[in-house]
Design a protein around this nucleic acid. Sequence first.
DNA 1: ACGACCATGTAAACAGTTACATGATTTA
DNA 2: TAAATCATGTAACTGTTTACATGGTCGT
Lengths: 178, 178
Amino acid sequence: MSLPHAILTALLEKPSSGLELTRRFDRSIGYFWSATHQQIYRELGKLEAEGQIRALASEQPARGQKKQYEVLPTGRAELARWTASSQDPKPLRDTMLLRLRAAAVVGTDGIETDLRRHLVLHQRQLAEYEEIEKRDFPPGRDSPQDRLQHLVLRAGIDLETFWTQWLTHAIEEFAELS
Amino acid sequence: MSLPHAILTALLEKPSSGLELTRRFDRSIGYFWSATHQQIYRELGKLEAEGQIRALASEQPARGQKKQYEVLPTGRAELARWTASSQDPKPLRDTMLLRLRAAAVVGTDGIETDLRRHLVLHQRQLAEYEEIEKRDFPPGRDSPQDRLQHLVLRAGIDLETFWTQWLTHAIEEFAELS
DNA sequence: ACGACCATGTAAACAGTTACATGATTTA
DNA sequence: TAAATCATGTAACTGTTTACATGGTCGT
């Protein structure tokens, strides 16, 4: 039940059409809650039917026409309720860790290549986050909004840092094993 | 497509019945790939139909009777293939980060309580992992199997360490904001 | 023999992914 | 005017979660 709330947040930050939302999910929001355009259109339809958002006037809803959506008071209230509600952390689900555990039983052939590939991907993501930090959070600016958003970005940076370190360590272990 | 492989791994480590598997998923495997008993029974049925596992003889398959499953050569081969195959890391999906981003727009009321609650849960999980490390990986033992499994446990420990640190930092920020 | 729990399962709802369809606008 | 791509959508499939059902075993 998080996709509608991700969309409400994005629309409150800035009213958008379906495609604009899709683009923004590819960039910022998607860094911790990804969604495809199909999911987004479906959810926009539901949210509109429920009266949480509405299409801005002046646009005819023909196919291939942009529709801009904005959040209604009901939607904002629902988002506030959800944000403040108590929710349990989801247990971790990670395929690479599962594969390593499997490798302990069926052998490590072939997995080292993918560890190296993942390392490169995580290093790339880390570099991207650090670029964003330099660009959007220069020292000095610290409105409450800035600090909250910076906190979220820090989580992304620290997570990618963890993965690069762990993968580096894992690859070293493999070098010693063989 | 990871649940069947998680089950194959668990069954290779030790042939088990559905309920035993469920218990083991609650403990070790579930730390990075959780599953409910419904998922497990359904998947066991599929894997048996595909000839990747079989019920050990000497058990009549009546309702309420334990059925022990073991992995067949086909299943082991499939697991080895999957383990070695190239797979992209799944993008992060984290509700707490999403909620913080929403809080930047609709206000932070109520979320701090849940940050503190999550901190306690992550500290508890971290303590559990460190207990397991002390018990199962004393210094000295280092067969290839041990090293791989220890590597996986290290990932769990480092991830929980990250969360406790990040949450602590987040709570400090909130203290300064208000 | 009754209640608690063990063990296996079914059904339905919900969420996410992949593949495809269709009209509108831009550009060569 | 044809091709590319923009923008919105549908359909089918896969995977996950939640709620419920059913028979067996064990302790009192």
